[in-house]
């Protein structure tokens, strides 16, 4: 199982991730347990998913999937994840900011896929608070990544006011 970091600490993962369906056949939906499902499955089977006897539901988005598509579902979800096919595919960074800043997602926002140590600082700034590390990433080194920089110029989820506004408040 992949190593999980949540709120900058090692964490246990209770979630089972389902992959998109192969041609035609919808994936089997387990009866119990926390399930992280692809967007398409959520769109086609929300009723079934929410009607299970136990367990929470989360949705994961591919890089080309618009977070607006789950904006109205967020109340029903316990986790939203964004998939990075390669760490160099930066679309998920915009997805995260939109989820946090535009659609008001306050629950766990998890980066999954090719998640490595050297992207954690930026990922945390755009609103991710959980990270499923790719195989072979050293956990201790990864935990130190959140302190790579002590300040930032821009507006971001983690510090909504840009440095220039915070500076003038401090000065005032």
């Amino acid at each position: 199982m992949a190593t999980l970091i949540r709120h900058a600490k090692p964490a246990q993962d209770s979630w089972l991730r389902l992959e998109p369906a192969a041609e035609g056949a919808p994936p089997a939906i387990p009866e119990r347990g926390d399930l992280l499902v692809p967007l398409k499955l959520w769109q086609s089977s929300a009723g079934v998913l929410l009607g299970r006897p136990s367990g929470r539901i989360g949705v994961w988005l591919a890089p080309d999937e618009d977070p607006a598509l789950i904006a109205d579902s967020l109340d029903a979800l316990a986790l939203v994840a964004v998939f990075f096919p390669q760490f160099t595919d930066g679309r998920g960074y915009s997805t995260a900011r939109l989820l946090r800043e535009r659609y008001g997602w306050r629950g766990e926002l998890r980066a999954i896929g090719d998640v490595q140590r050297d992207q954690l600082f930026y990922l945390s700034r755009v609103g991710f608070d959980a990270f499923e590390l790719n195989d072979g990433i050293d956990l201790q080194s990864a935990l130190s990544a959140f302190a790579d920089f002590s300040e930032a110029y821009q507006t971001s989820v983690e510090r909504p006011l840009p440095l220039f506004c915070r500076r003038s408040t401090e000065a005032a």
Binding site: G90, Y93, F121, A152, Q154
Partner: peptide
Amino acid sequence: RQWSTFHPEFAYL
């Protein structure tokens, strides 16, 4: 320059 330096959203365009 300041805005674009380490802009977290736009490092992997």
